[in-house]
Amino acid sequence: MSVHVLVTGSSRGIGAAVVEALSGREARVIGHATSAAEGRIAADLADPAAADRLWDEALARLDGRIDVLVNNAGVFEAVADDADPDVWREAWDRAWRINLQAAADLCRRMVLHVRERGGEGRIVNVASRAAYRGDSPAHWHYAASKAGMVAMTKSIARGYANRGVLAFAICPGFVMTGMADEYLASRGGDKLLADIPLGRVAQPEEVASVAAYLALEAPASMTGAVLDVNGASFVR
């Protein structure tokens, strides 16, 4: 029986690589993006109701069963500390809604789904190195939202392991995706690379291979694990 998977933020970068990695492993995968395309459901996760609609549509397309949820969707948008207060708060609200609240809403649906049908369900949350190391002065909100995602993952793992829900998080550093390219250039790519002992940023396929392992192969005793993929730029 194939594994049924929902992957958010699947139009490019890590999410697209996760879909490809899982599709090559005989999984049935439904992706998500802000615009519709073949194999993807359109949803704007800044809308408070969008995550529940996304889950319902994915569940229908996957014949009433979702075995694995991969929360990858996120925004990485700068806001200056001296921005207008309304602009500042909107940046925080948007990061919180997309990076954390929507992921939380989908995690909740997975927990309830497993409770209703029995068996096992897996959650893989793509957080960030920033959850532990922090980020730039223009990205407090991003780091805070990803720290929340890690704490949420640990809470789910501790609270629901005995009810069949396994939860894992991945904390990538810089990954060569469209979201990171502009930031790398703006901060002087060579200088940033000097802070990565490996000497390069990760490729989306590297993060996807970790996500696929957690989704399909990781032993149940690993639940609650947070795995780093950052070229040793931050070692815990």
Rank of each mutant, 00 (worst) to 15 (best):
V18L: 08
L214W: 08
D56G: 07
E26R: 01
V87C: 11
I98P: 00
V175K: 12
Y160I: 12
I123G: 02
M176R: 10
M222Y: 15
W88M: 14
Y160S: 07
V68H: 00
I14N: 10
G224A: 06
D44P: 03
W88L: 14
A83Q: 05
V150G: 04
R61Y: 13
T223F: 04
D52L: 13
A194M: 15
D135F: 06
G118K: 01
A33I: 01
S23P: 00
A212V: 04
A194S: 15
I170N: 02
W55H: 05
A130C: 07
A131M: 03
W92F: 02
P204R: 08
V124H: 05
G134K: 06
C107Y: 09
I156C: 11
L62V: 02
V226F: 08
C171G: 11
W96E: 15
A180E: 15
L193C: 11
R133D: 13
V126F: 11
S23W: 04
N125F: 11
Y132W: 15
A43F: 14
M1A: 05
L214S: 06
A51N: 08
S11A: 12
R200H: 00
R61E: 15
H32F: 07
A218C: 09
D63C: 03
W55A: 06
G64D: 11
A157T: 10
D228R: 03
W55Y: 12
L22D: 04
A36M: 00
L59T: 09
A215W: 08
A208F: 00
T223M: 01
S2G: 05
R94I: 05
K191Q: 14
S35N: 03
L54R: 08
A33Y: 06
V18D: 06
G74R: 00
E206Y: 02
G159Q: 10
P197R: 10
R89F: 13
G224P: 08
K154C: 04
N230R: 00
A212W: 04
A157E: 13
E57L: 08
E206P: 04
M152A: 06
M179D: 09
S221E: 10
E116T: 02
A103E: 07
E217V: 09
I156H: 06
D44T: 09
G119P: 05
W140N: 12
A212K: 01
A51C: 07
W55L: 07
R129F: 06
W55E: 12
E120G: 04
A138K: 14
S145M: 13
M110L: 15
L59P: 03
R61M: 14
A212G: 01
G74F: 01
I41Y: 09
S10Q: 08
A147F: 00
N99R: 13
V114Y: 02
P172F: 07
T34K: 14
G178T: 05
V3P: 00
M110E: 13
V235F: 13
E205M: 03
Y142V: 02
A232M: 05
L214I: 03
A220V: 09
Y160E: 15
E182C: 02
R200W: 01
A167S: 14
V3I: 06
L214K: 10
N230A: 03
S23I: 01
